[in-house]
Every structure is written in structure tokens, then in C-alpha cells.
Design a protein around this nucleic acid. Structure first.
Lengths: 198, 198
DNA sequence: GTCTATAGTGCGATAGAC
DNA sequence: GTCTATCGCACTATAGAC
């Protein structure tokens, strides 16, 4: 019974099932470990806390995102560099992940504690992207704004992706979001600004 | 000794001083209450927890933001409506608030616990803005994107405002940020998109 | 593991404003 | 007297020191 492979994966799967069945709060770490054929102690050897079992994937996500940004054309405008990173995530959020992502999102939105953790992950994604841009000699404030904008685009894309039914639509939705953003800015009349400047 | 006016204000001032002097973790609620001439118990009558003493202002901020959005031209494009809300915050972040905002920001960035709380406040600001836009018949996904973008602009503006030395520069910086954002989007070449579409 | 310090809560008592 | 902000005490929970 011991030393079955992929303890982390089994714990994640068990946690997702139990959270979906009974809710996050009503599930104990012992329940999760039990279903995975492991002990409470082993759970905490792999995850720092109960929440973290839902967020391990975001580490590899961040790596893929940053790697793609690093590989982007050095002459690319800042926002393009970030979007190249988001594009790379389309490979991670493929059709096979759609159902998983939906279930996970439903759990997260049901619990403020988890929602907070997600905000933190998005913020660190943005901070890392800004840092990468700064390495490319993009001025700090511009880097921050471009990074935040890119992460917004990612978040909007992800949200729409799980809200609709085509599991393969991530990349298409990403471009829809980019078009929406462009038109939002394009329709923004700067006479709102100039009026306020006088 | 009892019944001195403005208990909340005194508690906020004491907290800010002590956090700046000794750090957030090294300050106990009893210390704060003591300096304000009150007791620990009274502190918790006014604030749900220790962090909240640094965030009460954000409630009135949210109200001013939403009120300005409500008052905006009904025909205005979505992003303009949100920016009208941000413009209104220039009145709150006037010169007299500059030093306070700087001190507060330094404290918040020194403690992850506080940083989280700030992320949550920004997220609820975005959610409220999106809700207001939806009331104006802006489609949900567009509303979310416009709201997030506006809150980003606010955050970038605020960050630059406290990083520089002119206490009256909030509105000017806001327009700088808007120009930066426009140019970021303008320089974004959509052949990145079309290439990925093929 | 124990021990300590602190966050945070419930409830009843008290001091002052009216 | 009423009303309410403040207070005092006893409690639980938890994080860290040892």
C-alpha cells in the first residue's frame, strides 16, 4: 500500500473530489489524506496548508508564463512581451483541463479564504512579469502597468473560458479579450482628461 | 478621561505612529489602544481586527468612487465611466494626504498580511465598478475588463503618486498613466494574435 | 511536548450624555 | 430614568519559544 506513485497528484485529486462533494470547510485534511491512502502528516509534507493543494499547479503555470516572456523578441513592445507569456498558457489550459478548471473555480469562488489565495497568486504573477520587463530595460512604472494589464487579460480570458462550453476555446477567447481591450481604450475619449486638466 | 471625541480617528493615528516606529508585528492592540487613551476591548468594538485600522478609509474611498461613476454620463463608454470614478479620487488624495499615504504604504508593503488585505480591497473595488457598469447595460465580460483596467490605472497612479515628491500631483499622474496605457495598447501589434490564430 | 504572548469574542457592568 | 460608548473579565485559538 505504501509508496504508490504520485502522492501529490493523488492528494490533489482526492481533495478536488471531496471539496466538490461536501464543500471546502466540511472537508478535513485527514479526509483528503485518507482517500489518497496517505496520512495527515504526509499531506503537510507536500503542502504548507490545506489551501495549497488547490494551487500547486499555479507554480508551473508561472514558470511557463515567464519562460515564454523570456523567449519573446527583445524588440517587442512591453505589452506584446506579456501577451506572448499569456499565449503560452493556452497550451496548459487545453481541452483536457477544462472540466478540472471549472470544478476548481467553483470551489474557489465558494470560499473567501481560497479567493484571497488566488488574488495573491495573480499578484505575484504580475510582479514577476513586471520584473522580467524591467530586465528588458522597460521603465519600472511602465513595466508594472503592462504586467498588470497582461494579467488582467489572462484573468478575463480564463474566466470566460470556464464560463462557456468549448473546451478548446482558450486561444480564441484570448484574442477576443484583446480585441475588447483595444476597443475599450480606443473608445476612451481623452477629452475626459483634458477637461479635468483645465 | 472617557468620552473624548473621535475614538476611531485617535486609534488610527496611534496605530499609524506605532506601526511606523516599531513595525506592525511588534505592536500589540493593547499598545495602540493605550496610546489613544482607550482599552483593547474598545479597539475591537470599532475594528473587526488589527489590520482593519489601516483600511477604514477605503470604505469612504469606495463610496466616492462609485458615486462619481453613477453620476457619469450614461452614454459614456465603459472605460470613461470608470475613469470618471478614479478622477473623483483625486479630491481624496489631495496634498494633505500625501505624507499619510506614504507612511501607510510603507507599513503595508512591510507585511504580507497587510498586502493581502489591500489586494482584497482592490478586488472589491473592481467588483463594485463592474456591477455599476452592468447596471448601465454593459455586457458582463466587458464590464469586468473595463473595471479591472480602471482599478489598475488607479493603482498605478497611486503608486507613482507616493513614489514622487509633489503632493498635489495625483491628477496629473493619473493622466500620465492613461497616456502610458494608451500607448501600450497602441503599440501592441495584433499580428502576434493573427500569427497565433493560423 | 509545555509555556507564553497575543488575536479575537461574549457578556455583563459602568460612566457619562441626554 | 434611557441610551450608548467604554470597560473588565473570562474565555478560545493559535503561533512561536523552548
Amino acid at each position: 500500500m505504501r509508496w504508490q506513485p504520485d502522492a501529490v497528484g493523488r492528494l490533489q485529486a482526492s481533495a478536488l473530489e471531496l471539496f466538490a462533494e461536501r464543500g471546502y470547510d466540511a472537508t478535513t485534511v485527514a479526509d483528503i489524506a485518507g482517500r489518497a491512502g496517505l496520512t495527515r502528516r504526509t499531506f503537510f509534507r507536500h503542502f504548507t496548508d490545506k489551501r495549497e493543494v488547490l494551487f500547486v499547479g499555479s507554480e508551473q503555470l508561472l514558470q511557463a508564463f515567464l519562460a515564454a516572456m523570456e523567449a519573446a523578441d527583445l524588440d517587442a513592445p512591453p505589452l506584446d512581451t506579456v501577451i506572448v507569456g499569456v499565449e503560452a498558457l493556452a497550451d496548459i489550459f487545453g481541452p483536457e483541463r477544462h472540466q478540472f478548471a471549472r470544478t476548481r473555480a467553483a470551489i474557489i469562488s465558494s470560499c473567501p479564504e481560497l479567493h484571497e489565495r488566488e488574488l495573491i497568486k495573480l499578484a505575484s504573477m504580475s510582479a514577476a512579469a513586471a520584473e522580467t520587463l524591467r530586465t528588458r530595460r522597460v521603465p519600472g512604472p511602465v513595466a508594472t502597468l503592462a504586467a498588470d494589464t497582461g494579467v488582467n487579460v489572462f484573468h478575463a480570458t480564463f474566466t470566460r473560458w470556464i464560463a462557456q462550453d468549448d473546451p478548446a476555446a482558450f486561444r480564441r477567447i484570448l484574442h477576443e479579450v484583446l480585441r475588447t481591450l483595444s476597443s475599450l481604450i480606443a473608445h476612451h475619449r481623452s477629452d475626459t482628461d483634458t477637461a479635468a486638466l483645465t
